[in-house]
Simulated scan of single mutants.
Amino acid sequence: MRIAAFTTMGLVLALAAAPFIASDVGAKASVSSGVEVAYASVGADTSIPFGWVEFCQRYASECAVSGKVADVNLTEASMHEIRQVNTFVNRSVEAVSDMEHWGVVDRWDLPADGKGDCEDYALMKRKMLIERGYPRSALLVTVVRDQQNEGHAILTVKTNGGEYVLDNLTDEVKPVSKIAYRFVKRQSQQDPNVWVALGPVAAQKFASR
């Protein structure tokens, strides 16, 4: 059931009041030795989406460089929390096109009025996870092409046990190897204002430490 007409602050406060478990970003990783994990192949710097540039003019603090590069430590608890954020935002925001919402072809924004398109869902999930202590450098807005070759935006969560996708089209948090999209580009881990091209997903074995 959709929860209508939240303000951005209301979404954050509602999330804070929800029955989330405590974040355990620093806990020991739960990924077992020999488990296959997957990452999108990262290429050279590429063009920055104009929607991101314009978004940063309105929300400068959301575009700050953290100065520290870190992945999310993947545990059962952290994955549970990530899934909760994905589901909460998906069910709290009404999907509308930018043309319907703003009268323009493309605008990236936080869903302050409870409405938004794919980029807005991704930005809200990113904001909420950052505010819950997850590293900014591991929460990467990502541009993909779907099966109809249409542009789409998702949030990639980069963990020490592979990369996972938060998508407004499903409440399921999936590893990148299980996604039918073609990855195009995403934010750099070093600087969210630098974007890098993406290639095919590559799988590797997770080695215990």
Rank of each mutant, 00 (worst) to 15 (best):
A4H: 09
A4K: 10
T7H: 12
L11H: 12
V12N: 05
A14N: 15
L15C: 10
A18G: 11
F20H: 12
D24Y: 03
A27E: 12
A27V: 04
A29H: 13
A29E: 09
S30D: 14
V31I: 15
V31G: 09
S32K: 15
S32Y: 07
V35W: 14
E36C: 03
A40C: 13
G43P: 07
I48H: 02
P49T: 12
W52S: 09
E54N: 14
F55Q: 10
F55K: 10
Q57D: 11
A60S: 13
A60D: 06
E62Y: 04
C63V: 04
V65D: 14
K68W: 04
V69K: 11
V69W: 02
A70I: 00
A70Y: 02
D71I: 04
N73Y: 08
N73D: 06
L74A: 11
E76L: 07
A77C: 03
E81F: 06
E81C: 04
I82R: 04
R83Q: 12
Q84N: 11
Q84S: 13
V85S: 03
T87H: 06
V93S: 07
E94N: 09
A95F: 08
D98F: 11
H101R: 11
R107S: 08
D113P: 01
D113C: 00
K115W: 00
G116C: 03
G116T: 01
G116D: 07
E119V: 05
Y121S: 01
A122S: 11
R126D: 01
R126S: 00
K127Q: 05
M128A: 14
M128T: 03
M128H: 01
L129M: 12
L129Y: 02
I130G: 00
P135Y: 13
